[in-house]
Computed example of a mutant assay.
Amino acid sequence: MLSEFQETLLQSVQAFQSTQLVKNKYENVLQHLDSGILLFDSEGVLTFINVQMAKLLELPRQSLIGCNLLQLMRHPYLSRFKQKKIARIYRETIFHRRKYHELIDEYGRHWLISVVYGDQMEGDFLLSVKDVSDYKQIEQTAYQNDKLAMLGKISAAIAHEIRNPLTAIRGFIQLLRPHLIQLGKDEYARIILMEIDRANDIIHEFLNSSKPTAPQKTIVSVSSLLKDAMLLTESEALMIGCEMRLHQQTEDLYVSIDVKQIKQVILNIIKNAMDAIHEVSVIHYAGMIELGIKQEGDRVNISIQDNGNGMDKTLLGKLFDPFFTTKEQGTGLGLSVSYRIIRNHGGTISVDSMKGEGTVFVVSLPLTRQA
């Protein structure tokens, strides 16, 4: 009888140990997932948080276990930004019954948040957070490529059809100009010719945005490239009370590029920065454009940062779209052309901005050896 009891007890201990091993194994897997995980019980108390989620919240794990949502929100080390995001997720989950959310954090990363609750969770709430920035980048690149391909087809179909009548109109206006001068209406002829030339410039930009010429590459110093761009824009910057600075590493870095095309990209971004600074009309305001050079592995990052008006996050995803512009006189082709040029050089171009705090563009290009 005693031996049977001991055997039953041994089996129970072994079963418990086996269950505990399985539990520890699965908990270890959850701890090291690349997704952040929070688990609240039916009473709203946090019973589990993995390492990744603690890193995202920038809080120690042990200080969170046993907290309810209100206590989590009031944690002394939780940032104000994260408090707002958690409150938004709670509101949309509980009141709007949404189980999936997307948000952008203070560092510009995209996160997909999913919430699981109901009968299958026995009253518990499981919240998982995954970084989908790379997927968003791939999606945006594919979307941009589709737009540029469509733009190429449109430009091939209509560009010449528009240019031909403009050429004829310009020729006839020039023939009529002596008669207009006699009538004292030379100003009319000048305005017509100026507008025709402007229309031709827009068509030229339109064609370049759809199919830029192949890069004619030479090896150049990045610092000399930026110094040339600063010389070309320095006088215009001084006119609006803007200072320009160049920050670079001690070692000079070299890239193999089409100098004319890349300089066009740099000048376009600097011009946009000056426009953003010019929009700010505050007493004692000092405009600043800072150009930086930094090596990242086998690439060089060229940053152009301003302290201008900045942009809302909603506009950032549209900046490189053809014909999208926030300027009254803009064509919306400058940045889409820049995007294509940088991509043709095997590089990337990105932007980050915040309303009232300025904008920073980063152009990344492959490094090369000096000739």
Rank of each mutant, 00 (worst) to 15 (best):
254 Y>D: 07
206 F>Q: 00
201 D>M: 09
241 G>C: 06
296 E>R: 15
228 D>T: 07
268 N>K: 03
273 A>W: 09
280 V>L: 06
270 I>Q: 04
264 Q>C: 14
234 E>K: 08
246 L>I: 06
181 I>C: 09
311 M>F: 12
301 N>K: 15
201 D>N: 11
188 Y>A: 04
271 K>A: 03
242 C>L: 10
211 K>V: 09
209 S>T: 14
299 R>K: 12
263 K>D: 14
196 I>M: 04
300 V>P: 05
317 G>P: 00
324 F>A: 01
224 S>D: 09
279 E>D: 07
224 S>Q: 06
229 A>E: 08
259 V>R: 08
324 F>L: 04
313 K>M: 14
261 Q>H: 07
287 G>P: 08
282 V>A: 08
197 D>A: 15
296 E>G: 10
312 D>F: 03
181 I>A: 15
317 G>V: 04
199 A>D: 02
209 S>H: 05
250 T>Q: 11
242 C>Q: 11
241 G>K: 12
201 D>G: 07
183 L>I: 05
182 Q>A: 11
212 P>V: 15
276 A>P: 00
322 P>F: 11
311 M>Q: 02
208 N>K: 15
324 F>R: 00
319 L>H: 06
197 D>I: 09
245 R>N: 07
246 L>R: 06
187 E>T: 03
276 A>Q: 02
298 D>Y: 13
306 D>H: 09
291 L>C: 13
187 E>N: 06
252 D>L: 08
269 I>N: 05
221 S>Y: 10
206 F>V: 00
247 H>L: 12
251 E>N: 07
233 T>H: 02
303 S>I: 04
246 L>F: 10
237 A>M: 11
289 I>Q: 09
193 L>F: 11
289 I>V: 15
205 E>I: 04
324 F>P: 00
302 I>F: 11
228 D>I: 03
181 I>L: 13
296 E>M: 14
182 Q>W: 12
204 H>C: 03
255 V>I: 15
230 M>I: 10
280 V>A: 03
241 G>N: 10
316 L>H: 04
243 E>W: 08
245 R>F: 05
304 I>E: 01
282 V>L: 10
249 Q>F: 06
220 V>L: 09
292 G>A: 12
258 D>N: 12
248 Q>G: 07
323 F>K: 06
231 L>Q: 08
195 E>W: 04
235 S>W: 14
209 S>E: 07
182 Q>E: 10
261 Q>K: 13
270 I>P: 00
201 D>I: 05
198 R>M: 10
213 T>N: 12
318 K>W: 03
181 I>H: 12
225 L>T: 00
196 I>R: 03
268 N>W: 01
250 T>D: 08
287 G>A: 12
233 T>I: 01
222 V>N: 04
220 V>M: 02
182 Q>R: 07
216 Q>L: 12
271 K>G: 01
184 G>W: 03
305 Q>K: 15
239 M>F: 06
303 S>D: 03
207 L>A: 14
276 A>K: 01
317 G>N: 07
275 D>N: 05
274 M>R: 01
246 L>S: 06
315 L>W: 08
197 D>S: 14
295 Q>A: 12
221 S>I: 03
233 T>P: 00
